[in-house]
Design a protein around this nucleic acid. Structure first.
Ligand code: FES
Ligand code: FES
Lengths: 133, 133
DNA sequence: TTAATTCCTATCTGGATAGTAGGAATATAT
DNA sequence: ATATATTCCTACTATCCAGATAGGAATTAA
Protein backbone atom coordinates (compact mmCIF):
# COMPACT_ATOMS: atom_id res chain seq x y z
CA UNK A 1 0.00 0.00 0.00
CA UNK A 2 1.30 3.36 -1.03
CA UNK A 3 4.53 1.73 -1.96
CA UNK A 4 6.94 3.48 -4.25
CA UNK A 5 8.01 1.50 -7.27
CA UNK A 6 11.64 0.56 -7.68
CA UNK A 7 11.55 2.49 -10.95
CA UNK A 8 10.75 5.70 -9.16
CA UNK A 9 13.32 5.14 -6.45
CA UNK A 10 15.89 4.46 -9.14
CA UNK A 11 14.85 7.57 -11.03
CA UNK A 12 15.26 9.74 -7.99
CA UNK A 13 18.63 8.30 -7.13
CA UNK A 14 19.73 8.80 -10.73
CA UNK A 15 18.55 12.40 -10.68
CA UNK A 16 20.33 13.17 -7.43
CA UNK A 17 23.42 11.64 -8.96
CA UNK A 18 23.23 13.93 -11.99
CA UNK A 19 22.34 16.89 -9.82
CA UNK A 20 25.63 16.65 -8.01
CA UNK A 21 27.58 16.71 -11.29
CA UNK A 22 26.15 19.65 -13.20
CA UNK A 23 29.35 20.43 -15.07
CA UNK A 24 29.85 17.24 -17.02
CA UNK A 25 27.74 14.45 -18.46
CA UNK A 26 27.51 10.98 -16.92
CA UNK A 27 26.98 7.75 -18.77
CA UNK A 28 24.19 5.39 -17.95
CA UNK A 29 26.68 2.77 -16.81
CA UNK A 30 28.37 5.24 -14.54
CA UNK A 31 25.14 6.18 -12.80
CA UNK A 32 24.11 2.55 -12.57
CA UNK A 33 27.26 1.67 -10.73
CA UNK A 34 27.29 4.70 -8.47
CA UNK A 35 23.68 4.23 -7.44
CA UNK A 36 23.52 0.46 -7.51
CA UNK A 37 20.88 0.21 -10.22
CA UNK A 38 20.60 -2.57 -12.85
CA UNK A 39 22.30 -0.98 -15.84
CA UNK A 40 19.95 -2.04 -18.62
CA UNK A 41 16.93 -1.22 -16.55
CA UNK A 42 18.25 2.24 -15.88
CA UNK A 43 18.46 3.00 -19.59
CA UNK A 44 14.72 2.85 -19.88
CA UNK A 45 14.28 5.08 -16.89
CA UNK A 46 16.63 7.70 -18.27
CA UNK A 47 14.71 7.63 -21.52
CA UNK A 48 11.54 8.59 -19.73
CA UNK A 49 13.21 11.33 -17.78
CA UNK A 50 14.55 12.70 -21.02
CA UNK A 51 11.17 12.48 -22.75
CA UNK A 52 9.86 14.60 -19.92
CA UNK A 53 12.52 17.22 -20.44
CA UNK A 54 14.18 16.72 -17.09
CA UNK A 55 17.49 15.61 -18.50
CA UNK A 56 19.37 15.86 -21.79
CA UNK A 57 21.54 13.34 -23.53
CA UNK A 58 24.08 12.89 -26.25
CA UNK A 59 24.76 9.67 -28.07
CA UNK A 60 27.93 8.16 -29.30
CA UNK A 61 31.36 8.18 -27.82
CA UNK A 62 31.74 10.59 -24.92
CA UNK A 63 27.98 10.76 -24.81
CA UNK A 64 25.92 10.65 -21.67
CA UNK A 65 23.27 12.41 -19.64
CA UNK A 66 23.12 15.70 -17.81
CA UNK A 67 20.56 17.91 -16.15
CA UNK A 68 18.32 19.91 -18.46
CA UNK A 69 17.34 22.35 -15.73
CA UNK A 70 18.57 23.61 -12.45
CA UNK A 71 17.85 21.08 -9.66
CA UNK A 72 16.08 23.78 -7.70
CA UNK A 73 13.63 24.12 -10.58
CA UNK A 74 12.64 20.45 -10.60
CA UNK A 75 10.04 19.33 -8.12
CA UNK A 76 9.86 15.76 -6.91
CA UNK A 77 6.34 15.62 -8.26
CA UNK A 78 7.69 16.15 -11.76
CA UNK A 79 10.06 13.24 -11.41
CA UNK A 80 7.44 10.93 -9.95
CA UNK A 81 4.92 11.79 -12.63
CA UNK A 82 7.49 11.39 -15.37
CA UNK A 83 8.05 7.82 -14.27
CA UNK A 84 4.70 6.60 -13.09
CA UNK A 85 2.25 9.06 -14.50
CA UNK A 86 -0.36 10.96 -12.59
CA UNK A 87 -0.89 9.73 -9.06
CA UNK A 88 -4.22 8.02 -8.62
CA UNK A 89 -4.76 6.40 -5.26
CA UNK A 90 -8.04 5.05 -6.61
CA UNK A 91 -9.40 5.03 -10.14
CA UNK A 92 -12.35 7.17 -9.16
CA UNK A 93 -10.15 10.14 -8.39
CA UNK A 94 -10.38 10.95 -12.06
CA UNK A 95 -13.45 9.00 -13.16
CA UNK A 96 -16.43 9.43 -10.93
CA UNK A 97 -18.69 6.49 -10.22
CA UNK A 98 -16.05 3.80 -10.40
CA UNK A 99 -17.50 2.14 -7.35
CA UNK A 100 -21.15 1.96 -8.32
CA UNK A 101 -22.07 4.46 -5.63
CA UNK A 102 -21.73 7.10 -8.26
CA UNK A 103 -21.74 10.68 -7.08
CA UNK A 104 -23.06 9.52 -3.72
CA UNK A 105 -19.80 7.80 -2.85
CA UNK A 106 -18.58 9.13 0.47
CA UNK A 107 -15.04 7.76 0.46
CA UNK A 108 -14.33 9.49 -2.81
CA UNK A 109 -13.61 12.88 -1.26
CA UNK A 110 -11.41 11.17 1.25
CA UNK A 111 -9.29 9.68 -1.50
CA UNK A 112 -9.17 12.92 -3.42
CA UNK A 113 -7.93 14.65 -0.31
CA UNK A 114 -5.25 12.05 0.10
CA UNK A 115 -4.05 12.59 -3.44
CA UNK A 116 -3.89 16.34 -2.88
CA UNK A 117 -1.88 15.82 0.27
CA UNK A 118 0.63 13.59 -1.45
CA UNK A 119 0.87 15.87 -4.45
CA UNK A 120 1.48 18.85 -2.21
CA UNK A 121 4.28 17.12 -0.36
CA UNK A 122 5.98 16.19 -3.61
CA UNK A 123 5.46 19.55 -5.25
CA UNK A 124 6.90 21.43 -2.30
CA UNK A 125 10.24 19.69 -2.49
CA UNK A 126 12.79 20.19 -5.23
CA UNK A 127 15.50 17.88 -6.45
CA UNK A 128 17.98 20.25 -4.87
CA UNK A 129 16.41 19.75 -1.46
CA UNK A 130 16.52 16.00 -1.77
CA UNK A 131 20.01 15.82 -3.21
CA UNK A 132 21.28 17.76 -0.23
CA UNK A 133 19.54 15.47 2.26
CA UNK B 1 2.13 4.49 -7.70
CA UNK B 2 0.56 5.11 -4.34
CA UNK B 3 -2.38 3.11 -5.49
CA UNK B 4 -4.84 1.80 -2.99
CA UNK B 5 -5.56 -1.92 -3.17
CA UNK B 6 -9.07 -3.08 -3.97
CA UNK B 7 -9.02 -4.83 -0.61
CA UNK B 8 -8.59 -1.58 1.22
CA UNK B 9 -11.20 0.22 -0.80
CA UNK B 10 -13.61 -2.63 -0.13
CA UNK B 11 -12.77 -2.55 3.56
CA UNK B 12 -13.52 1.13 3.82
CA UNK B 13 -16.77 0.84 1.94
CA UNK B 14 -17.78 -2.05 4.18
CA UNK B 15 -16.93 -0.05 7.26
CA UNK B 16 -18.91 2.97 6.15
CA UNK B 17 -21.78 0.62 5.44
CA UNK B 18 -21.68 -0.76 8.98
CA UNK B 19 -21.16 2.69 10.46
CA UNK B 20 -24.49 3.84 9.10
CA UNK B 21 -26.30 0.93 10.75
CA UNK B 22 -25.09 0.92 14.33
CA UNK B 23 -28.30 -0.52 15.78
CA UNK B 24 -28.41 -3.87 14.01
CA UNK B 25 -25.99 -6.37 12.54
CA UNK B 26 -25.49 -6.82 8.79
CA UNK B 27 -24.58 -10.02 7.03
CA UNK B 28 -21.62 -10.31 4.77
CA UNK B 29 -23.91 -10.91 1.79
CA UNK B 30 -25.89 -7.81 2.61
CA UNK B 31 -22.82 -5.59 2.71
CA UNK B 32 -21.49 -7.20 -0.45
CA UNK B 33 -24.64 -6.34 -2.35
CA UNK B 34 -25.01 -2.84 -0.95
CA UNK B 35 -21.42 -1.92 -1.68
CA UNK B 36 -20.91 -3.93 -4.82
CA UNK B 37 -18.14 -6.16 -3.49
CA UNK B 38 -17.50 -9.81 -4.47
CA UNK B 39 -19.25 -11.69 -1.67
CA UNK B 40 -16.69 -14.40 -0.97
CA UNK B 41 -13.84 -11.97 -1.17
CA UNK B 42 -15.51 -9.71 1.34
CA UNK B 43 -15.65 -12.50 3.92
CA UNK B 44 -11.89 -12.54 4.15
CA UNK B 45 -11.76 -8.79 4.52
CA UNK B 46 -14.29 -8.78 7.34
CA UNK B 47 -12.24 -11.44 9.10
CA UNK B 48 -9.26 -9.16 9.16
CA UNK B 49 -11.24 -6.21 10.39
CA UNK B 50 -12.57 -8.38 13.18
CA UNK B 51 -9.11 -9.68 14.08
CA UNK B 52 -8.12 -6.07 14.49
CA UNK B 53 -10.99 -5.39 16.83
CA UNK B 54 -12.74 -2.92 14.57
CA UNK B 55 -15.89 -4.98 14.16
CA UNK B 56 -17.66 -7.80 15.97
CA UNK B 57 -19.54 -10.76 14.58
CA UNK B 58 -21.93 -13.53 15.45
CA UNK B 59 -22.24 -16.80 13.60
CA UNK B 60 -25.24 -18.86 12.76
CA UNK B 61 -28.71 -17.84 11.78
CA UNK B 62 -29.41 -14.17 12.35
CA UNK B 63 -25.69 -13.69 12.68
CA UNK B 64 -23.72 -10.92 11.07
CA UNK B 65 -21.32 -8.06 11.66
CA UNK B 66 -21.54 -4.80 13.55
CA UNK B 67 -19.25 -2.04 14.71
CA UNK B 68 -17.10 -2.79 17.75
CA UNK B 69 -16.47 0.88 18.48
CA UNK B 70 -17.94 4.23 17.78
CA UNK B 71 -17.10 5.35 14.21
CA UNK B 72 -15.69 8.57 15.60
CA UNK B 73 -13.15 6.50 17.52
CA UNK B 74 -11.82 4.68 14.46
CA UNK B 75 -9.22 6.44 12.36
CA UNK B 76 -8.77 5.65 8.72
CA UNK B 77 -5.20 4.74 9.49
CA UNK B 78 -6.43 1.90 11.68
CA UNK B 79 -8.52 0.50 8.89
CA UNK B 80 -5.78 0.80 6.31
CA UNK B 81 -3.22 -0.82 8.57
CA UNK B 82 -5.61 -3.60 9.51
CA UNK B 83 -5.88 -4.55 5.87
CA UNK B 84 -2.49 -3.83 4.40
CA UNK B 85 -0.19 -3.55 7.37
CA UNK B 86 2.15 -0.73 8.15
CA UNK B 87 2.61 1.74 5.36
CA UNK B 88 6.09 1.65 3.89
CA UNK B 89 6.59 3.79 0.80
CA UNK B 90 10.06 2.30 0.52
CA UNK B 91 11.64 -0.57 2.39
CA UNK B 92 14.30 1.65 3.89
CA UNK B 93 11.78 3.60 5.91
CA UNK B 94 12.11 0.89 8.51
CA UNK B 95 15.43 -0.70 7.61
CA UNK B 96 18.22 1.73 6.96
CA UNK B 97 20.69 0.98 4.20
CA UNK B 98 18.33 -0.85 1.90
CA UNK B 99 19.70 1.03 -1.06
CA UNK B 100 23.39 0.43 -0.58
CA UNK B 101 23.95 4.10 0.10
CA UNK B 102 23.63 3.22 3.73
CA UNK B 103 23.32 6.06 6.15
CA UNK B 104 24.49 8.42 3.44
CA UNK B 105 21.30 8.02 1.44
CA UNK B 106 19.80 11.43 0.82
CA UNK B 107 16.39 10.42 -0.50
CA UNK B 108 15.69 8.47 2.65
CA UNK B 109 14.57 11.43 4.71
CA UNK B 110 12.41 12.48 1.83
CA UNK B 111 10.59 9.15 1.88
CA UNK B 112 10.27 9.14 5.63
CA UNK B 113 8.68 12.56 5.44
CA UNK B 114 6.26 11.30 2.84
CA UNK B 115 5.22 8.43 5.04
CA UNK B 116 4.64 10.79 7.95
CA UNK B 117 2.51 13.01 5.77
CA UNK B 118 0.34 10.13 4.58
CA UNK B 119 0.05 8.68 8.06
CA UNK B 120 -0.99 12.05 9.43
CA UNK B 121 -3.69 12.46 6.82
CA UNK B 122 -5.11 9.05 7.59
CA UNK B 123 -4.83 9.41 11.35
CA UNK B 124 -6.59 12.77 11.34
CA UNK B 125 -9.73 11.40 9.74
CA UNK B 126 -12.19 9.10 11.46
CA UNK B 127 -14.60 6.64 9.97
CA UNK B 128 -17.37 8.99 11.01
CA UNK B 129 -15.92 11.79 8.90
CA UNK B 130 -15.65 9.58 5.86
CA UNK B 131 -19.04 7.94 6.26
CA UNK B 132 -20.60 11.39 6.26
CA UNK B 133 -18.76 12.46 3.13
C1' DT C 1 37.19 1.80 -38.70
C1' DT C 2 36.83 1.01 -34.12
C1' DA C 3 34.96 1.84 -29.74
C1' DA C 4 31.66 3.84 -26.86
C1' DT C 5 27.50 5.22 -26.10
C1' DT C 6 22.24 6.16 -26.41
C1' DC C 7 18.11 4.24 -28.02
C1' DC C 8 14.64 0.81 -29.46
C1' DT C 9 11.94 -3.53 -29.23
C1' DA C 10 11.03 -7.86 -27.55
C1' DT C 11 10.91 -11.26 -24.09
C1' DC C 12 11.05 -13.67 -19.62
C1' DT C 13 9.85 -14.34 -14.77
C1' DG C 14 8.23 -14.23 -9.94
C1' DG C 15 5.24 -12.68 -6.87
C1' DA C 16 1.42 -10.28 -5.60
C1' DT C 17 -3.59 -9.23 -6.18
C1' DA C 18 -8.13 -10.42 -7.01
C1' DG C 19 -11.24 -13.74 -7.01
C1' DT C 20 -13.31 -18.65 -6.54
C1' DA C 21 -14.58 -23.18 -4.38
C1' DG C 22 -15.98 -26.14 -0.94
C1' DG C 23 -17.08 -27.16 3.20
C1' DA C 24 -16.66 -27.11 8.62
C1' DA C 25 -18.44 -24.90 12.69
C1' DT C 26 -22.07 -22.55 14.91
C1' DA C 27 -26.40 -20.58 16.03
C1' DT C 28 -31.47 -19.90 15.43
C1' DA C 29 -36.11 -21.15 14.37
C1' DT C 30 -39.62 -24.25 13.77
C1' DA D 1 -34.33 -33.00 15.65
C1' DT D 2 -33.93 -30.90 11.61
C1' DA D 3 -33.47 -27.46 8.36
C1' DT D 4 -31.53 -23.14 7.50
C1' DA D 5 -28.62 -19.31 7.71
C1' DT D 6 -24.67 -17.58 8.75
C1' DT D 7 -19.49 -16.97 9.98
C1' DC D 8 -15.14 -18.99 9.45
C1' DC D 9 -11.30 -21.70 7.50
C1' DT D 10 -8.23 -23.64 3.90
C1' DA D 11 -6.86 -24.19 -0.45
C1' DC D 12 -6.75 -23.20 -5.20
C1' DT D 13 -6.65 -20.54 -9.77
C1' DA D 14 -6.04 -16.90 -12.85
C1' DT D 15 -4.31 -12.74 -14.24
C1' DC D 16 -1.54 -8.97 -14.22
C1' DC D 17 2.50 -6.25 -13.82
C1' DA D 18 6.91 -4.77 -11.92
C1' DG D 19 11.45 -5.83 -12.47
C1' DA D 20 14.78 -7.37 -15.14
C1' DT D 21 17.34 -9.12 -19.27
C1' DA D 22 18.81 -9.62 -24.27
C1' DG D 23 20.20 -8.22 -28.64
C1' DG D 24 21.04 -5.15 -31.61
C1' DA D 25 20.30 -0.55 -34.39
C1' DA D 26 21.67 4.29 -34.64
C1' DT D 27 24.95 7.76 -33.61
C1' DT D 28 29.16 10.08 -32.46
C1' DA D 29 34.07 10.86 -31.36
C1' DA D 30 38.71 9.50 -31.66
S1 FES E 1 -16.40 6.47 -6.53
FE1 FES E 1 -14.50 5.76 -5.75
S2 FES E 1 -14.84 4.63 -3.92
FE2 FES E 1 -16.73 5.34 -4.69
S1 FES F 1 18.25 3.94 2.15
FE1 FES F 1 16.39 4.07 1.05
S2 FES F 1 16.72 5.02 -0.88
FE2 FES F 1 18.58 4.91 0.22
Amino acid sequence: MFSVSARTQYAIRAMTCLATKPDRSSTSAEIAQAENIPAKYLEGILSRLKAFGLIESERGKNGGYRMAKNPSDITMLEIVEAIDGRIKPVTCVDAIGACAQGAACHPRNFWIGLKSTIDAYLAERTLKDVAQG
